[in-house]
C-alpha cells in the first residue's frame, strides 16, 4: 500500500462513522438505543449504512475509472464520461420509465437498474465494434488509434444524450417527466441493500479489470509507439479499459443516476501524493473517490434545504469550478 492509499484509507475510516451519524436527525454515537430518536438502530442499519456503502462503492468505481481513463488518454483532463458509457446507461434507465407498463410487476423494482446496465453494455458493444474498425487501421501504422477511439466515445455520448433528451420531451405524462429529470441528476436518497447487492460485485469486478491494465497504462506514458515497442498489446488494453470503465460507471449509473466530475477530479487530488504513474493512481483514486462521494452525500443530507440537494448536482457544482481551475493551471504549464 503506497502513501496515497494510506492517506485516503484513513480519511475513509474517519468519514464512515461521521456519515452514519449525520443526517436530518443526528444520532448520538454513545447512546444509539436511548438517544431519544425512535428507531435509531433501524435508521442506521436500513437507511444510512446501505447509503454509505453505496457511496463508497460508486465513488471507488468512478475514481478508479477516472485514473485509468486519464492514463489511457495520456491526458489529465480525461473523464470516464468520454467513453459515452454513462450517457448510454442513462438512456437505458430513461427507457425503463417508458417501458414500465410492459415489465411484469415482479420485475418492476429491477427494471431501471437492469435497463441501465443494458444501456451500458450496449455502449461497450458499440465501442468494441468501433474499436475493431479503428484498430484495423491502426494496426498497420502508429498513432491515431486512441484519438479516433475517443472521438467515437464522444459520438456515442452525444447520440445517447440526444436520445435521452428526446425521451424527456416526449414523456408520457408530467409525472414521468419530473421523475426522469430528477433521476438523471444522480442521488443516493432512499437506496437500500438491494442496490448495494447489485452494484458491489460489478464495481469490484470493474476495478479488478482496471487494475489488470495498470502496467500497460504506465507504458503509454512514453507514447503509443514506445509503449508498443515495450510489448504493449493495444487491443488487450482497449478491451480491459472498455470492460473496466463499463462495469464501474455502468453499475454506478444503474443504482445512482449520473454523478459527474468524480472521475475527473479525484486523480488530480491523488497524483501529487504518488510517483504520478497511472499504475500508482488507480488504487488510491478508488479510495479517494469513495471519500469524495461519501463526504458529498453526507453534506447534501445535512444541508438545511426543503428538498435534499441532488448529489449529482452538488458534485457538479464543486466539479465545474475545479475543472476551470485545472484549465488555468494547465495554461500556466503546471500540470
Amino acid at each position: 500500500m503506497n502513501r496515497a492509499s494510506l492517506i485516503f484509507a484513513v480519511l475513509l475510516a474517519v468519514l464512515v462513522p461521521l456519515s452514519l451519524l449525520a443526517g436530518r436527525v443526528w444520532i448520538d454515537p454513545f447512546d444509539i438505543a436511548g438517544s431519544g430518536i425512535a428507531n435509531a438502530a433501524l435508521i442506521l442499519a436500513e437507511l444510512r449504512l446501505p447509503r454509505a456503502v453505496l457511496a463508497i462503492i460508486i465513488g471507488a468505481g468512478l475514481g478508479a475509472a477516472g485514473a485509468a481513463m486519464q492514463g489511457y488518454l495520456r491526458n489529465p483532463l480525461a473523464d470516464p464520461g468520454l467513453f459515452g458509457i454513462a450517457p448510454m446507461a442513462a438512456l437505458g434507465a430513461v427507457a425503463s420509465f417508458w417501458l414500465g407498463a410492459l415489465i411484469p410487476p415482479a420485475w418492476a423494482a429491477w427494471s431501471l437498474p437492469l435497463m441501465a446496465l443494458i444501456g451500458a453494455g450496449t455502449g461497450m458493444a458499440l465501442l468494441a465494434l468501433i474499436a475493431g474498425r479503428t484498430s484495423s487501421d491502426a494496426a498497420g501504422g502508429a498513432g491515431g488509434g486512441i484519438a479516433l477511439f475517443t472521438l467515437a466515445g464522444l459520438m456515442i455520448a452525444s447520440l445517447a444524450g440526444a436520445l435521452t433528451a428526446l425521451a424527456i420531451t416526449l414523456a408520457p405524462n408530467p409525472f414521468a417527466l419530473s421523475e426522469i429529470v430528477m433521476w438523471l441528476n444522480g442521488a443516493l436518497t432512499d437506496r437500500s441493500w438491494r442496490e448495494v447487492m447489485l452494484a458491489a460485485p460489478l464495481v469490484a469486478a470493474g476495478i479488478a479489470v482496471l487494475a489488470l491494465a495498470a502496467r500497460s497504462l504506465d507504458a503509454l506514458t512514453l507514447g503509443e509507439d514506445a509503449a508498443r515497442s515495450m510489448g504493449l498489446n493495444p487491443a488487450r488494453l482497449l478491451a480491459l479499459l472498455v470492460v473496466g470503465v463499463g462495469l464501474t460507471v455502468g453499475a454506478g449509473v444503474a443504482v445512482a443516476g449520473i454523478i459527474g466530475f468524480v472521475g475527473l477530479v479525484v486523480p488530480h487530488l491523488v497524483r501529487p501524493l504518488t510517483d504520478r504513474l497511472p499504475s500508482s493512481l488507480i488504487g488510491p483514486s478508488a479510495l479517494a473517490g469513495a471519500c469524495l462521494v461519501l463526504a458529498a452525500d453526507s453534506i447534501v443530507r445535512v444541508l438545511p434545504l426543503v428538498t435534499e440537494l441532488r448529489l449529482g448536482i452538488a458534485l457538479s457544482l464543486i466539479g465545474a469550478p475545479f475543472f476551470g481551475w485545472l484549465l488555468l493551471r494547465m495554461r500556466r504549464g503546471r500540470l
Binding site: 495520456r74 506514458t221 512514453l222 507514447g223 509507439d225 515497442s229 504520478r276 504513474l277
Partner: peptide
C-alpha cells in the same frame, strides 16, 4: 529490440 521514438513525448511528470 529497444525503440527510441523521435518525439520525446512524456505524458506524466515522473
Amino acid at each position: 529490440i529497444g525503440y527510441l521514438p523521435q518525439t520525446p513525448d512524456i505524458a506524466w511528470d515522473v
